[in-house]
Design a binder for these strands. Sequence first.
DNA 1: TGTATAAATGTTATCGATATCAAAAGCAAG
DNA 2: CTTGCTTTTGATATCGATAACATTTATACA
Lengths: 339, 339
Amino acid sequence: MRNKTKLPTMADVANLAGVSSMTVSRALKPDTSVSKSTREKIQKAADELGYVLDTRASEFSSGKSGFVAITIPSINNGNFADTVKAFSDGLAEQDLQVLLGYTNYHVDREEQLVEQLLKKRPEAIVVTGGMHTDRCRLLLENSGIPVIETWDVPEQPIDHVVGFSNLQASELMFEHFIAQGHKKIGFIGGDNSRDSRGRDRYLGFCNTMEKHGLSSERVSFQELAPFSMEPGASGIRSIMKEWPDTEAVMCVSDLIAYGAITECQRMGINVPDDVKIGGFGAYELGQFLNPSITTIDVGAAQIGKFAAEKIIELLSDDGNTKSAKIVKTEPTLIKRQSA
Amino acid sequence: MRNKTKLPTMADVANLAGVSSMTVSRALKPDTSVSKSTREKIQKAADELGYVLDTRASEFSSGKSGFVAITIPSINNGNFADTVKAFSDGLAEQDLQVLLGYTNYHVDREEQLVEQLLKKRPEAIVVTGGMHTDRCRLLLENSGIPVIETWDVPEQPIDHVVGFSNLQASELMFEHFIAQGHKKIGFIGGDNSRDSRGRDRYLGFCNTMEKHGLSSERVSFQELAPFSMEPGASGIRSIMKEWPDTEAVMCVSDLIAYGAITECQRMGINVPDDVKIGGFGAYELGQFLNPSITTIDVGAAQIGKFAAEKIIELLSDDGNTKSAKIVKTEPTLIKRQSA
DNA sequence: TGTATAAATGTTATCGATATCAAAAGCAAG
DNA sequence: CTTGCTTTTGATATCGATAACATTTATACA
């Protein structure tokens, strides 16, 4: 069934319109010098044949692919979605498309994905996080295109960075707890070996506790493969069972906090009167829950916007102007009802 | 900066390894006849040069692109994410990649997107919904590849369909309301001109009301551009203000229901005692909210899975075997606390 | 009207891989 | 060591568009 009838090519259109295929090529682009009459003639021929440009040939011939690759950990995550949306919007004016890939929080999967993406010769690549396999790092370094690491500030950046310190960001929440006089503080996170951002948020917990001479034992690490709400429920159950006098808990994301808060309600524990619960990421659902979720806003959309701007700058650049290698966004605490 | 140093090509690898580029091409694929020793030699040369295959050239030369296009209305929507995930997983074994595009619930945007995607010569295309502009329909019909419409059962399908009747699905909820003895029933939806699935759910409301001789006036249509929770809050406010004796309301999605339920809580209205609220789509967050959200499960993942299977079948097909043009999934009511 | 300049169109070579066919090398059996 | 087969490798044409350059046609102005 498929490909039985071969699709029309530019030469077919040229034939029908009685011009050369080069003229067709020009007529189909917006800003080239083709007379109005021939352009109309060609447009008519193209419509008649149902001609659709083959960008594979086009990209191959012109040498530029017209798109930028971006990898994010998970498709179903409002935060990364915000980043991607702002990123796409920022690149749209430059006629650059976005090719998206999901690592599922696995560095091995990331390596595989990055290789796949590079094979398509993007004009730049954006990756989430600063933790990569050695080979992935090498691939990116040798790619010959701008590389931007986001959502993190790696110690040894590959190239450019648009991110923030997850460690410092999570400290905001713990300092907030402590300023309210709490001492028995806990943390619910995920598998730190897979998610370096989650790990840094946990380190922020440890640092702050240590700084104030408090115990950092009240932790629960849950399997949160498809980063979700259930683990928040099990996490808070486990913490409240082992340390019933816990006063405040920060969760590695708002989705976890959502699971934890709603589970508290089911257990008859009042949030925030009995225990305070903080989230991370300023997801929309946290704003509407009762109690609304106190959280850390990391400026997800801003990251995407900045990354897009940087890419536009780097691509238009003739290699002279030096732009900042590292752009930091400023996480802020959003005080709401839950903590 | 970019492209300054040209990336190595297959010919470079061939040179270094002392073979022809054709042999390199073969060695880099898994199942071709190349002797073990030369394959190792070539692999070594490729690694040394940091060679990465240029799929643009590869696809162009071989004539197949190796990917399938899919359009969905919104990136940040758990339901469509589920469909896409199942779809990707289903195609992964066939070495088919997925190229994703977002229509933002606009048919004009869809037309533009479909054209963009077709330019890249996918091997098949999946679109969400059965409402298209005339030109978009034409583009799809002339594309020469399998087309699958999903999440809907159009009256005049373009080619293949994997979907369900949104009308019948929403009737499940209204019949559920009525079976509980309710008569004063409402609906919160969005802009029907943009979202045909939402419109069909609304029609399901009207049909059921009419069938039982009830009024279908209690409706609120909200602007829900980035399909979200706030509109649920305003929607329920407006309905409860105008018709305070409303007994049950269905929302066009769980996200809207979430906004509506939490707003009720803030207004001191008890759900489900004072008013019952139903959602649509079986989103994860509805399962954990107190009260948990009664909803319609449309089998989002199943749609993706079926679509993938159909594509594999159609692509491997020699054009003989006739497969069903229309595959329907069976929406079910998930009875929880809110209704 | 002729010359200078700009605009419109055509010609040819090319991007990097693979399909296809041809040739060489390896191998088994007599 | 020769014949006949399989396996491995190579040479060449080709996919469809565009870059770069060449040429023709239109336009302006003296």
